[in-house]
Nucleic acid binder design. Sequence first.
DNA 1: GTCTATACAATGATAGAC
DNA 2: GTCTATCATTGTATAGAC
Lengths: 192, 192
Amino acid sequence: MSRWEPDARGRLLRAALELFAEHGYESTTTAQIAERAGLTKTTLFRLFSDKREIVFQAQDELVALVKRGVDEADVGASPFELMVSGVRVLSGAHVDEHRRTGRILDPILAASPELNERAVFKRFALTVALEKALFNRLVDRWEAGALADLGIRAYYLGYDVWVASDGPAPLTSYVLEQVTHLQGAMQRVTNS
Amino acid sequence: MSRWEPDARGRLLRAALELFAEHGYESTTTAQIAERAGLTKTTLFRLFSDKREIVFQAQDELVALVKRGVDEADVGASPFELMVSGVRVLSGAHVDEHRRTGRILDPILAASPELNERAVFKRFALTVALEKALFNRLVDRWEAGALADLGIRAYYLGYDVWVASDGPAPLTSYVLEQVTHLQGAMQRVTNS
DNA sequence: GTCTATACAATGATAGAC
DNA sequence: GTCTATCATTGTATAGAC
C-alpha cells in the first residue's frame, strides 16, 4: 500500500514515447511528459539525469551484459571467441518486445540530432566496455580495440536487420551472421 | 578597415579555453566567454550553434579531408590502401600548433561529460565519412565499415601518442604506425 | 554584413513542506 | 518519494544600430 501509483519510470517512458511520436522530441517539454505520467517535472529529473536519458537509460544495463559475456567465456577461448561470447550475451538479452519498441523509437531518433548524439555515445560506451573486458582477459591492446569495433558494429548491423524483419529468428542469429560477414571482410582486406 | 576587431571566432575560442582551464567547462557561462572576447552572448550563438561547438567546430573540416584522401587515391588502389590514403590526408593537416591546443584541451575534455559526448560524436562522424568514401569507391559494404573503424581508431591512437610526445615526427607517422599495429592484430585474430 | 539590446521558452538544480 | 516554488543558464527570436 503506497500513496502513489507504482512504476513511475515506466509511466514516464511510455508518456514520453507517445508525446515524441505525436509532436516530435524537441516540441515536447519535460513538463508535458511529467503531466501525462501524473507526476511533476521535479520527479522526472530525479528519476532521469536529463531528458535524453528517458529514452536511453535502459541501455545502460547492456554494458554489464557484454562484459559478462566475455568474462564467462571458457579459459581456452581465442580472442575472437571471447568477442563473440560478449556480443552473444549482449544480443541474447533482447526479447521481441524490444523489436516493437525499436520500431517506435527509431524514427524519433532519426529526426532528432540531440537524441542521435546520445545514441552514438551509448554505442561508444558499449565499445569501450567490450574493449576493456577483452583486454582484461589478456588480449593484446590492439586486438582488443579492433575486435571491440568489429563486435559492436556487428551488433548494430544485426539489430537494424532484426528490427526491420518479421521472422521468428532471435536477434543473436542476425548478429552472428554479421560477425561472419565482417570477419570475412577483414581477412580479405588485411591480407592484400 | 572594419569597425570591429577582426577574428571574432578566434577570440571567442581563446577566451573559452582560458576560462575553461581556469574554472572548468560547466562553471563558465556563455556570457562570461562573450564578455572576455569583447562581444555579447547573441554574437556567440550566431557564430557557434551551441556552447560545445566553440571547442569542436574546427573539427568539422576533418570530414572533408578524410573524404578527399580516399577520393584522390590511385585507381588501382586496394581497399586497405584507400583507407590509408584517407587517414594520411586527415592526419597530414595537423601542424604543431594543434599539438599545443590538444595539450590544453584534453584535460578540459576529460573533466566534462558534456564535452566528452560531443567528442565521441565527432569521432563517429569521421568514421561515417570514411566509410561512405570507401563505399563510394566500390568497396564492399562490410569491408568499408570495418576499414573505417580501423582507420579512425589508428588516427585517434596516433593522435594521443603524438600529443604526449615531444619529437619532431609529424602526426602522420604515428598514425601509420598504429595502422600497422591494428592490421597485424586483425590478421592474427580473424584467422584463428 | 556584423554586432547589440531585450525579451523569452525550456532545461535542470535546489530548498523546504507533506 | 513527491510537490511547489524559485532560480541560473542555455539557446532563440526580434528589432535595431553602425
